[in-house]
Design a binder for these strands. Sequence first.
DNA 1: TATTAGAAAGTAAGTACTCACACAAGTAAT
DNA 2: ATTACTTGTGTGAGTACTTACTTTCTAATA
Lengths: 175, 175
Amino acid sequence: MTEKQEKILQAALELFARDGFSSTSTSKVAAHAGVSEGLIFRHFKNKEGLLEAIIKEGEVKARTLFADIVLESDPKEVIRKTIDMVLNISSNRADLEFWKLQYKIKWETEKYGEHKMEPLHLALTSAFTKLGYVSPELEASLLLIINDGLATRIALQKGFKCETLTSFLKEKYQV
Amino acid sequence: MTEKQEKILQAALELFARDGFSSTSTSKVAAHAGVSEGLIFRHFKNKEGLLEAIIKEGEVKARTLFADIVLESDPKEVIRKTIDMVLNISSNRADLEFWKLQYKIKWETEKYGEHKMEPLHLALTSAFTKLGYVSPELEASLLLIINDGLATRIALQKGFKCETLTSFLKEKYQV
DNA sequence: TATTAGAAAGTAAGTACTCACACAAGTAAT
DNA sequence: ATTACTTGTGTGAGTACTTACTTTCTAATA
């Protein structure tokens, strides 16, 4: 990938995250990236192609993020790392912007990437099973739903302090 | 409010919920409502005004929805009704569309109406206190966050069965 | 008669996207 | 070494069309 190609992606990421996909014009992306507008279409074919490139990047990042959790053998660690994941993301500026965009895209395109979550869901189910929970599969679903709720707050509720809730959760699950 | 005014609002609600605010043009709203485009600007001043009218409607609906819960004296009922609230919404087509739009707007405008949730949060805190929970305020926050997560799934994950999770929750809270 | 609801036809600015062209850098043949 | 040809990166001006919003007009009603 060339230097300007990366600049376009970075500019699109920033503007899409701030203003939304359909509120961001290709001319704005080009101006913000410091390139000509035509270059966007040369490299990404359409505006949609630009979005897809960003989504793909998100899928890769998600996989590497989950890998560390899924490979964990200690069930308590699986749960703890899942809870901490959202905390880690929220504490890093660049990561926060990136994942906020991924959620924004979900709401704008109305496609929920449930398949992306499946390995994590399986790992959590097995963890809750090992710990003797009565409904491990539902417990896993619930924890992921809590993470979705937390993500919503982190992204939209300015000044939301995530840490108090994550440590409360870790206490609850005794991890 | 005149007949055509209501038609405009209804059309805007449907299109904003389906395609998003900025992807929906005033001309499309007018066509869908069967009125001239200019009429939108006569009655709502601008596109933003149309959105505000819908948001205001949402605030009214939210208040009446919470009223029943807040006035409840039995702490277990407060918790049960809070959990069932999201289930009730998801089972009604028109309501679902309406609340989906409210969430969509939140993500598009990045304004989280936390003040709207405050009475419910207080009612839940008092309920958890009465039931002797160790951290009633955090428990209240957690339940509302779970509701946010559930709303995300209901709106975005097609085929999501909400009922299994809500009954699981009611079991967990013993309500 | 004055005010309002409504339609129809505008407007200027913006939209996604295309096109012709320039400038390299590599490759191969002379 | 020079020439010719391809290939990929990049630009800037243009395309047809859509956008939010205005203006001008009419018909009804209080």
